[in-house]
Design a protein around this nucleic acid. Sequence first.
DNA 1: GTGGTCTAGACCACC
DNA 2: GTGGTCTAGACCACG
Lengths: 128, 128, 128, 128
Amino acid sequence: MDIQLDATSEVPLYQQLRDRVVEGIAAGRLRTGETLSPVRRLAAAFGVNPATIGKGYDLLRGEGLVTINAKSGTFVRRDRDVPLTDSNFVDAWFPRLVTLLAEGRAQGLGPERIREICDAALESFERE
Amino acid sequence: MDIQLDATSEVPLYQQLRDRVVEGIAAGRLRTGETLSPVRRLAAAFGVNPATIGKGYDLLRGEGLVTINAKSGTFVRRDRDVPLTDSNFVDAWFPRLVTLLAEGRAQGLGPERIREICDAALESFERE
Amino acid sequence: MDIQLDATSEVPLYQQLRDRVVEGIAAGRLRTGETLSPVRRLAAAFGVNPATIGKGYDLLRGEGLVTINAKSGTFVRRDRDVPLTDSNFVDAWFPRLVTLLAEGRAQGLGPERIREICDAALESFERE
Amino acid sequence: MDIQLDATSEVPLYQQLRDRVVEGIAAGRLRTGETLSPVRRLAAAFGVNPATIGKGYDLLRGEGLVTINAKSGTFVRRDRDVPLTDSNFVDAWFPRLVTLLAEGRAQGLGPERIREICDAALESFERE
DNA sequence: GTGGTCTAGACCACC
DNA sequence: GTGGTCTAGACCACG
C-alpha cells in the first residue's frame, strides 16, 4: 500500500493511517474488494502497536469505507465511482469543508487561488 | 457577531467559536481592526464559561488571526484581502485539504461535483 | 523530575513548568520517549490545579517538544541531539536572543563577559 | 533613531520600542546623555497612541536605562561601557538566558551552533 | 488509569 | 472596563 506514517507528527498514527487509506481510495489506488494489509503485518512494518492499526481500520469501517471480517481480513468496501445515494455524508462533510476553506480565505488566499489549489488536489486523485 | 454554539456537538465549544470567527473573517463580516465581543459578554450570551471563550480567542491568536490586548480587547488582525507572505501556512494547509477532499471522493462524489461544492463554499464568502 | 514552581513569581505557573521541562530536555535529563508525570499527579505534588499543569504541557506540545496522548500520557518528543530540519525555529529564536543579549550589553556587561556567561549556561546542559 | 515597529507582531508595541532602544544602547548607537525622541513626535511618526510610547519609555526607566524628565525629555542614562556594579541584574538575567538557550538546545541546536549564534549577535553590537 | 473539556467562580494587573 | 491566571471541582472518552 506504500503508506508512510510520521511518528513525529501531531496527528495520531491511527488517524494518519485512516487518512492515507482514504486518499488511496480517492485516487483509485485502492479498489473495491481489495484487501488491506493484515493488522499485525502492518503494525510490524510500521513498528507500532497492532491496536493502533486496528483503530485506524475501525475508523474506516465507521465511515463505511471498509469491511472488517475477523476471519478473512479488511477489504475496501466503497467504490469512489459509485455515486452516493445517502445525502447524510454531504450534510456532515460540507460544513467541515467550509471551515477549512474559510481558514485559507481568512489567511489571505484569494478565491481563485483556493480554487486552483482544490483543482490541483482533485486532479491528483484522477491522475493515477 | 451572530454566532451560534452547539453544546451537544462533539466539537469543543472553543473550537466552534474559533471556526465561526474564521468563517466570519473569510466572509468579510469581520474586518481588520474590528473588535470581537469581550470574553465575559460573549460567555454570558452563550451561557458558557469565560475561560472557554478565552481559549477560543487564544487559538485565533495562535493562528495570527486576532490580536489580544488585555487592556482594550480582542481585535481582528488578518485581513482576508492581504495576500499571504508566508508560505508555511499553505504548506500545512494543503495536506489537510487533500485529505478532506479525498474523503468526499472516496465516498463517491465525482471531481466535478466536489468542484461545484467548493465553488459554492467560496462564493458564500464573497457574497457579503 | 525535580521541578520547583514559585507561586510568588510574576511568571505564570504553567510557563514555569514549561521552562523547567525545556531546560530538562536541553540538559538531557529528559530524553526522547520519556514520560512526563501525569497531569494530576504533578498537580498534587505542586499543590496546583491539574488544568494549570495541562496548560503547561499544551505549550510544550505547541512547540513540538512533547506528544500528548489522552490514553497513555505525555512524552518527550524532541531529542536535543536530533538536528533541526526546520529553519523557522531559528528565524523566530534569533531575534529574541539578540534582544536578551542586548539587555546584558546595555546594562554594562562586556562582550567577553556575556560570552563567558553563555558558555557557563551551555556547559551546564552538557554536564549531565 | 531609525526604529521600526511591527503592528502585526504578537509583541506589544511598547515592548518592541523598549527592545529596539535596548538594542540601540547595546550597539552603541544610543550613547549616554543622548535624547530620545519626544513621546508625541514618536507617537505621531509611528501612528500609535502616545501612551504606548510612554509605556515603552517607562519600562526603560524601570530598568535604569533612561532618565525621564517631564520638562526636558527622555535621556539615555546607562553607558554600555560602564561596568555593572550591581550584581542583581545578572542574578535576574542569567536564568532568563538559561531558559532561552535551553529552548534552542532542546530544539536540536548543538552547543557549538548556539555559541556561534551568540557570537554573531554579540559581534553585531560591536560593529558600529 | 490517562488527558480533555467545562463550570462557576476568584483575584490580579492594567488603564 | 479588559483579558490573564488559577482554583476546586465535575464529567467525558478512551483503553
